[in-house]
């Protein structure tokens, strides 16, 4: 949980694999990187077993680059496709039992605050729609109602992709899937509204076809979760296998879905706006200067 944990033990440099040496010497630890520099530095994420063309992997890759302090970040996940990539990164990953990720993250976040005091240590939960909206639903909502300070990110592929295509609460009404041949009978769950009702300080929906926007919302969510309260990001990360999207059309699908039902939305409380502007210099949230008094007409 500091810059020291990625460094070599003295005398072992020459025995380390090339990827590891690149990570220590040219990784994002201890310096600022952004999506516009992608391809010129060694990323936290390594090779992973996710399917070719997976939009979820792209989102995870962008998220890993967007963490404000990767050396002080722990990710928490659960069963699902996402953990196959999240666990292949050079930051600690905690694998919860199915559905208990927000409970694990609550304890972790509180423990880190006790141990490290004011030094920010970020906990980021990244799980799929099944792990969060179905099986981990009560744990997720409870952590928000308790105002646990960590970021929660839903990788919403609208299906149980890892187990063959069962419907989840986040599947759209009427969708016919391999393991849901009659079509889904009820509407997609509105987790965004629930997050707002439960008291999240920042709620956003994104689609990974805009990397800069993904970077921006993840940075804000992690920073706000340090002191203000729980934050929630819902990302559309299509499953090209279960929804039979040709791999080269994944971004076209993301664009269509964004225009159709997954428009970018951002909800931020006044307290969070003030925190971001005062602590981290977010100019867009600075209080607007009072309007000048109208000149009286002669």
């Amino acid at each position: 949980m500091s810059l020291d944990y990625v460094k070599f033990s003295t005398g072992f440099e020459k025995f380390m694999p090339k990827e590891y040496r690149d990570m220590v010497e040219h990784g994002p630890f201890g310096r600022k990187v952004s999506v516009s520099q992608m391809g010129t530095f060694k990323e936290i994420l390594e090779e992973h077993p996710m399917c070719a063309g997976c939009a979820m992997t792209l989102f995870i890759r962008l998220a890993m680059i967007s963490f404000p302090n990767p050396e002080d970040t722990i990710t928490v996940g659960t069963a699902g496709c996402g953990r196959l990539a999240i666990s292949q990164a050079a930051i600690p990953f905690v694998y919860g039992n199915y559905g208990d990720q927000n409970g694990v993250a609550s304890g972790l976040s509180r423990g880190l605050r006790l141990r490290f005091g004011d030094k920010p240590k970020d906990v980021v939960v990244m799980v799929g729609d099944g792990g969060m909206a179905d099986i981990g639903f009560s744990g997720t909502l409870h952590s928000w109602f308790r105002k646990e300070k960590f970021a929660t990110i839903m990788l919403d592929n609208e299906v149980y992709g890892n187990t063959g295509g069962q419907e989840s609460g986040m599947t759209n009404k009427g969708a016919v899937l391999k393991m849901a041949p009659l079509g889904k009978k009820f509407e997609k769950m509105d987790m965004v509204s629930m997050a707002k009702v439960a008291g999240c300080a920042y709620v956003a929906t994104v689609v990974p076809n805009n990397p800069r926007r993904v970077e921006s919302v993840i940075k804000k969510a992690v920073l706000i979760a340090r002191e203000v309260g729980p934050t929630y990001i819902q990302a559309y990360t299509s499953c090209n296998i279960e929804y039979a999207i040709p791999t080269d059309k994944v971004m076209e699908d993301a664009k269509n879905v964004e225009n159709d039902r997954y428009q970018f939305s951002e909800y931020i409380t006044d307290e969070a706006k003030q925190y971001l502007s005062e602590r981290y210099g977010y100019k867009e949230f600075l209080p607007k200067p009072a309007a000048a008094a109208a000149i009286p007409q002669a």
Binding site: G39, T40, E47, H48, T57, L58, R61, M64, M251
Partner: peptide
């Protein structure tokens, strides 16, 4: 540089 930002694989399209 758009392709470097859209590849799902890490450190695959480099610049």
């Amino acid at each position: 540089r758009l392709c470097t930002q859209f590849c799902p694989e890490a450190n695959t399209i480099l610049y």
